[in-house]
């Protein structure tokens, strides 16, 4: 579900980035306003825990395995806004330290895994436990919310791919939905197990969320905001495909130009005497990059040799 760079197009990943950044900024504000320093430290350790728990693999039908994601679990135990921040931090570490998921796609990955997942999970869990506040309701609610959150996040990722014109809508939703409906069973079972364990051992941890209630209004605002962004993104995507922008215009021309460019031309082919055209400029820039790199390499080599000589001289 970690979308890498290069898969989403600008009309999709830019709104996704803006949308996630907005929601997370709001979440940060809420967390700072309502939580003490101590609770924030606790939340940070929980972020490390969720990251570690993502290494929890379990078998899925067909010999493959899924892994625990934890969005709904975080929302149930920590509350909605802290859970969003925790999940966003997890996704960010994966992207920045492990190149697991792209940087331009980070906004989209945050949107699906850190915002939609916890939002849906939190909503379902609250709805179920509000109906009946029993142990069974909580455990079942945990299972249902984790399963639905998992499927919802996957469907959202599918929609983003569709918006970027990377995959046809129905098949991509079908594939993502089917697969994550299976993975979601494991996710749900583990989340239910977690909640039932906490109910038996430390029921006070589950009640903590009550101290930081996500009031319905702000949740609704967030949901509406996300919906607005989605509509704008859809609009931009359609417009972009109707009127090829600069990017796609270049792209269309490339279809033909691709064969022309020489494969054997080395790093910087098509050297023309400066005077005109983007290609020439690009060639000059590429030449500059080459010059700098060569310079630094030679400089590094020389210093290495000099220091070795100095060592030998001693």
């Amino acid at each position: 579900m970690h979308i890498p760079d290069g898969m989403l197009q600008a009309p999709t990943w830019v709104p996704a980035w803006l949308g996630s950044a907005g929601v997370l900024a709001y979440a940060i504000r809420e967390v700072r306003r309502r939580l003490s320093d101590g609770t924030i430290v606790m939340m940070a350790v929980m972020a490390a825990l969720i990251f570690a728990l993502q290494m929890l693999n379990f078998p899925v039908a067909g010999g493959t395995s899924g892994h625990f994601a934890g969005g709904a679990a975080a929302a149930i135990v920590l509350g909605l806004w802290p859970a969003m921040l925790v999940m966003a931090a997890v996704v960010t570490v994966q992207a920045v330290f492990f190149a697991d998921g792209g940087i331009t796609a980070l906004g989209a990955n945050m949107l699906t895994m850190a915002i939609i997942g916890p939002l849906v999970g939190h909503g379902i869990y609250r709805a179920i436990t509000r109906l009946r506040d029993t142990r069974t309701a909580k455990v079942t609610g945990a299972f249902a919310s984790a399963w639905i959150a998992c499927v919802a996040a996957a469907l959202a990722a599918g929609c983003l791919l569709w918006l970027s014109g990377r995959a046809p809508l129905i098949p991509v939703l079908g594939a993502m939905g089917f697969w994550h409906a299976l993975i979601g069973l494991g996710e749900g079972a583990i989340t239910a197990g977690l909640v039932s364990y906490l109910l038996a051992v430390r029921p006070d941890l589950l009640a903590r969320d009550a101290r930081m209630p996500a009031d319905a209004r702000s949740v609704r605002k967030t949901a509406l905001g996300l919906a607005a962004i989605a509509i704008v993104a859809v609009g931009i995507s359609f417009l972009a495909s109707a009127n090829p922008d600069g990017l796609e215009f270049v792209y269309e021309h490339l279809g033909a130009a691709f064969e022309e460019s020489s494969v054997l031309g080395g790093a910087m082919p098509d050297y023309v005497i400066p005077g005109m055209g983007n290609e020439t400029l690009a060639g000059v820039l590429a030449g500059l990059v080459g010059l700098i790199l060569t310079g630094v390499l030679v400089y590094g080599l020389l210093t290495a040799v000099r220091s070795r000589r100095a060592q030998q001289a001693e």
């Binding site: 606790m42 825990l49 728990l53 079972a189 583990i190 239910a192 197990g193 977690l194 364990y197 051992v201």
Partner: peptide, 16 residues
């Protein structure tokens, strides 16, 4: 799955 859930819960309490 139930055992993995208990492991998760155990780690949650310990991390807390």
């Amino acid at each position: 799955m139930r055992a993995l859930g208990s492991i998760t819960g155990n780690l949650f309490v310990r991390s807390y």
